[in-house]
Amino acid sequence: MNNRTPGWLGFLSLVTFSALMAAPLLWLVLTSLKTPEQMASEPYSWWPSPIRWQNYSDAVTAIPFFRYLANTLILCVGNVVGTLISCSLAAYAFARLRWPGRDVLFAVLIATMLLPWQVTMVPRFLVIRELGLYDTLGALIVPKFLGEAFYIFLLRQFFLTVPQSLIDAARLDGCSEVGILMRVMLPLCKPALLTVGLLEFVATWNDYGGPLLYLNDPERFPLAYGLEQFISSHSSELNLLLAAAVLFTLPIALLFAVLQRAFLSGIATTGMKG
């Protein structure tokens, strides 16, 4: 059918647009392998020659890369675990249990998703500080153990699809509600858990606002925040800065390559990323 196959002009514009989208990333990777002299050389050449892998080893020593990475990983693990536990518990209560106030609270939960973060930012900051969490990774992790509306909503939608007969059978066998959640729901909803875990992992990996607000001691900076500090202090060593940016992007790109389906189903259910 002709609306599905383009003419040569259409094909040419597809190639052009794709090239424009790809060019910045391609430039990033190639330039991160150049020597400082090559970066300034005339006439300009995209291709690094010779390829300078040393930029990468220099980049990880120019900033405390591994310390930042360790902080990021602690945050990622903490946040993913916290989110999965708190949200699947609440989602089960909302999806499969009957209790007074459930429907009202669920409507309120949906409404909170519309609240801009700016409205609650200041009092939230003071609550976290009162709890003694300021300038600790806990400031970012502890709230994740207290559930998040969006993930609860997402998991609830999946829990609703599990047949009631399975739950009834488990109850007859004397299984507790937590037991049902653990042994019936979660195993059946693995794709949903993977999606939620992945979204939270990526959101944590990328998070800049949280550390900006709650962290002060460079010892505790995660990569996203530490890398940004690098922009102003090392602006003369652009090749190192770009190498660090590549290193920071690579794990997320790989994660996408491996778990493409979970990424896309996250977008399909929500229409946006994290």
Partner: peptide, 11 residues
């Protein structure tokens, strides 16, 4: 769209 926002800013 999967490039972390801080990396995109650097770039």
């Amino acid at each position: 769209s999967v490039v972390p926002i801080v990396a995109a800013c650097v770039l």
